[in-house]
């Protein structure tokens, strides 16, 4: 993670800067995903309700736990021991799906930023003939001097 940040700040090359941003973000993704891992667990794809309709039948008129029921138990949930916690999931442990969702979103946001950034780099190259920060600053300085 730190290497990515280092690249962003240290390099003067605009493309390399964007690579650094990418590295930095990918590392943050790793932070999120690593905290979602549950030891010995499976990916969060539940085996049980294999077909649509199964759950409706097995759950009856939603007699099983609904969200509201779960919410009523918030204080307990954190205190429950793992065995009983995983009970409704047929005794199978799954890794935490929430960080996965967040990171899916973050990856997409990342590539969107990257696309805009690269488009800008291309235009900067056309306008200045370089993609090195120092050279761009020089060019601006010269333009300023010529103008005044």
């Amino acid at each position: 993670m730190m290497t990515g940040l280092y690249v962003v700040i240290s390099t003067g090359n605009l493309v390399k800067k964007l690579v650094g941003i990418g590295l930095f973000q990918t590392s943050v993704f790793q932070l999120y995903i690593s905290l979602s891992k549950v030891r010995g667990a499976q990916p969060p794809i539940i085996e049980k309700p294999a077909k649509y309709g199964d759950a409706v039948k097995s759950a009856g008129e939603k007699s099983a736990e609904t969200v509201t029921d779960l919410l009523a138990k918030i204080p307990e949930v954190t205190a429950l021991d793992p065995a009983s916690v995983y009970d409704p999931l047929m005794g199978v442990a799954y890794s935490n799906p929430l960080p996965h969702v967040l990171i899916l979103t973050a990856i997409v946001v990342g590539v969107a930023t990257l696309a805009v950034g690269l488009a800008l780099v291309v235009r900067i190259r056309e306008a200045y003939g370089t993609i090195e920060e120092d050279a761009i600053d020089d060019a601006e300085y010269k333009a300023e001097v010529n103008a005044s």
């Binding site: 930095f24 973000q25 950034g117 800008l120 900067i124 306008a127 761009i136």
Partner: peptide, 26 residues
């Protein structure tokens, strides 16, 4: 043309800011 570099710098710093924010939220 300086709008391009202004935007690019904003993009870099803005993204670093957003990423820091995401680390914090994480």
């Amino acid at each position: 043309r300086q709008a391009l570099t202004a935007s690019f710098n904003y993009l870099i710093l803005g993204t670093i800011g957003a990423t820091f924010f995401v680390i914090g939220v994480g």
